[in-house]
Simulated assay, not measured.
Amino acid sequence: MRTTKLRWVLSALLAASALSVGLVQPASAAAAAGERYVALGDSYSSGVGAGSYLSDSGDCQRSSKAYPSLWAAANAPASFAFTACSGATTSTVRSGQLTPLTSSTTLVSVTAGGNDVGFADVMQTCVLQSEATCVNAVNNAVAQVNGTLPGSLSSLYGAIRSRAPRARVVVLGYPRFYRLNGSCIAGLSETERAAINRGSDALNAMLAKQAANAGFAYSSVVDEFTGHEICSGSAWLHSLTVPVSNSYHPNATGHSGGYLPAFRSTV
C-alpha cells in the first residue's frame, strides 16, 4: 500500500514538473515574439569583420552574422530595426540612428564610445610607431574616456530614453584585445598589448558607470572573449588583416560565441 501511494505521489510530482516546464517555455517564447527591437551602435554592433554584409547596408556594413541579426533570427521579434553603422560615434548614433525608436519600442542594444576616443587612431599609432608613442596614445584616449566621453554618453543615453521611454536598453562593452604572454611571436610588444588592454578596461568601466546612471543594463563581453583574444591561439578577433577595416573587430564566431550570449543574458 505504501509503495503504491509513493508511486502515485512521484507520478503526480513528475506531471506537475512537466506542466510547469510546458507553461514556462511558451511564456518565454511569447515574450520574445512581442519584442520590438532596435539595434544601434558602431561597427561592433553592425558586424564589421563578421562578413555576410546586408546588401542595403552600404558602408555601414551591417552583417547577418552580427549579434543583433542572430538574436532577431532566433527570437522572431514583432519588429526589428538594425541601424548600427561602422564608424559611428555617440554623436552620429544620436543624430542618425534613433528614428526607429518609439514609445512602442521594448528592447534596444547599443555599442558606442570607442570611436569617440579615437580607437582606430590608437591602433594605427601602435602598429606603425614606437612603443612609447603607442603607450602615450593609449593614455590620451583614456584621458578622453574620463574627460569628454561621460557627457557624450549621457547625451546619447538621454536621447534613447526620451524616444523609447518603455524600452529595456542594453549597453554592451568591448573585449580586451590581447592575451598577454600568449602565442604571438611578432607584432606589438607586451607593453603595448597591456596598455591597449588597460585602455579597453577604462572604456568599459565608463560605459558601465554611465549605463547605470541612465538606468540601463550593461553587459560586459570580457568574460566571453577570455581565452579568445588575439594571441590566444583561438582568437575571435581579427588582428591586423586585409581588408584593413576588419582589423581589431570580432569575427563571426566573436558575435555568435561572444556578443550574442552577452546580450542574451540581459534580455
Rank of each mutant, 00 (worst) to 15 (best):
M1Q: 09
M1L: 15
T4S: 14
V9L: 13
A12T: 15
A12D: 11
L13W: 07
L14W: 05
V21W: 12
G22F: 03
G22C: 02
G22H: 01
V24P: 11
S28E: 15
A29G: 07
A32T: 12
A33P: 00
G34T: 14
R36Q: 15
R36S: 15
Y37G: 01
S43H: 03
S43I: 03
Y44C: 00
G47E: 08
G47N: 10
G49V: 11
A50G: 12
D56S: 05
G58I: 05
R62C: 02
P68R: 08
S69F: 05
W71M: 15
A72D: 07
A72M: 06
A73H: 04
A74N: 08
A74Q: 09
P77R: 04
P77Y: 01
C85Q: 04
A88M: 09
T90S: 06
T90V: 08
R94L: 07
L98N: 00
L98Y: 02
P100Y: 05
T102E: 11
T102M: 14
S104I: 08
S104A: 14
L107T: 09
G114D: 13
D116M: 03
A120D: 12
Q124G: 00
C126G: 07
V127K: 03
L128T: 02
Q129T: 07
Q129K: 02
V135C: 07
V135I: 13
N140Q: 15
N140A: 14
N146M: 10
N146D: 15
T148M: 08
G151F: 01
S152R: 12
S155H: 07
I160L: 01
R161M: 06
R168H: 12
V170I: 14
L172E: 12
P175H: 04
R176W: 01
L180I: 15
N181E: 05
G182A: 00
A186T: 08
G187A: 08
G187Q: 04
S189H: 09
S189Q: 07
E190Y: 01
E190G: 03
I196T: 08
R198H: 03
R198Q: 12
S200R: 01
N204F: 07
A208E: 14
K209N: 06
Q210D: 09
N213E: 07
V222D: 13
D223P: 10
I230Q: 05
C231K: 06
L237D: 04
S239K: 07
T241W: 00
P243D: 07
V244G: 01
S247L: 01
N251A: 07
T253Y: 06
T253L: 13
S256C: 12
G257E: 11
L260N: 05
V267W: 10
V267P: 09
